Computed example of a mutant assay.
Amino acid sequence: MTANREQKVEDVFTIQDSDCCGNGCTNCILDNKPRPSQRALLAGKRNIILKYTSFRLLQRETHSGDDQVLFLHFGNAAESDDKDDCVLDIPPGHHIMLRIGSLLRPYSPYWTDFASKEFKILVKLQPDGPMSQHLVAVQPNDRLEFRGPIGNYRHDSAVTKCIYIICQGVAVAPTLPLVGQVLENEDDMSRIWHLMCAPDLQHVYFRDQLLEFAKYWNYRSCLYVPHQQCGSDACLEAGHCRQECDELRRSLRYKERVCLHRLEANELKQHVAPAIPGLPVLIIAGDSGFQRAMGEAAAKALGVAQENVYLL
């Protein structure tokens, strides 16, 4: 690498206090600044998102059961001559920062395309959220600025692991690439336990994708939906569906396992399989309250060393 090239890379990675969104992110940009992409370097190109870059909204959809949940698909808006010299590399488990004026918010893509420089995020609009007030009005062809990737999770496929992923609501989105990178690698012998917490089945996002995962030998999942409610007299009287509810059973899909209560840390022991070899790893995706509630107790229940616990 030439001296000029080194200087350019150093300029890209300059981080200031103002780059922090102030929301207390687990993986703050001040602690985990964007790093060179080995994948991009091997391709002889640069990662376009290392500094704030304009992306155009290609598609906007609302969730069928909740119009406050948006699926947003972005593509690089560059029109310069060197656009073919760039790629987009956002490793699984990393987030990117959206900037609108002085307002900053992190989002974790659930899908990216390296060559076409596109990504998709899932957004839960908050009634009084400053960024939500902007995103509720964003329309296709609007341009927004993103920077990243920010995070510290790295998966080594050469090391067999028992990976426990616990996620809450829309935070299932950033866990999809984590699962995909294991299942799509035939040489990776790691096992995955995917535990998802949501109010009810209507708010379990990406069910079709989860069904695709269920086809793999090394993937297991369980949905925790304490507020699932059908219209039967017995379930209405109980205030929620019962495990033996026929209507609930008819609504389930192939290999879907459902528990009609909250996931408690002490219940996690039932997911431990001592006979299965692998380094225990715990990944928790959700808001700060969920992470605090699950973090230490889940690590203890699953036998995971603190250095192998990752919060997204």
Results as ranks from 00 to 15, higher is better:
L178W: 11
E264T: 10
L58H: 05
E307Y: 02
D287A: 07
L223A: 07
H63V: 03
K300V: 14
M196E: 11
E244Y: 09
L41C: 06
G180V: 03
K161Y: 01
K124Y: 03
L98I: 02
Q228R: 04
L312H: 12
S251I: 03
E118Q: 04
S116D: 14
L125G: 12
F114R: 12
A299C: 10
A265S: 15
E6L: 10
E10F: 15
E237F: 07
R143Y: 00
M196Q: 11
G180Q: 14
G289H: 09
C86N: 12
Q243N: 08
F74R: 04
Y164R: 08
E264W: 13
L211W: 12
W111Q: 11
A78V: 00
K51G: 15
R250V: 06
G148P: 11
D17E: 15
R191E: 14
L135I: 09
A298Q: 14
L248P: 11
P226M: 01
K124T: 05
C20T: 08
Q202A: 11
L103Q: 15
P34M: 05
S157L: 00
I121T: 13
S221D: 02
I165Q: 02
S37M: 01
Y254S: 11
I29W: 10
L50E: 11
L103F: 09
H95F: 04
S54V: 01
A115V: 07
G180S: 15
D84H: 13
G295M: 05
D17M: 11
S288Y: 06
Q243T: 13
G22F: 00
R5G: 08
L302S: 14
K45Q: 13
D156G: 09
H155V: 10
R46K: 01
G289M: 07
P277I: 05
P280M: 06
V179K: 08
D188S: 00
G101M: 03
V309D: 03
S80G: 13
Q270E: 10
A275P: 00
A171C: 13
A265I: 06
V159S: 02
F55K: 12
W217V: 04
L268Y: 07
R105I: 07
I100S: 05
A297G: 06
L122A: 10
C259L: 09
K255C: 12
G93L: 07
L98P: 05
V179W: 05
V182P: 14
K215M: 07
D233E: 13
Q229W: 02
L201K: 02
Q228K: 08
W217M: 04
A293H: 08
A299W: 11
M131D: 04
S190F: 11
R5N: 12
E296M: 10
D128C: 11
V258T: 12
T14G: 02
A301I: 09
A137R: 15
N4R: 15
T112V: 12
V138M: 05
F119N: 06
E267H: 06
S116G: 08
P277W: 01
F114N: 08
F13T: 09
L268M: 05
H95Y: 01
G303Q: 04
D200E: 01
L98T: 06
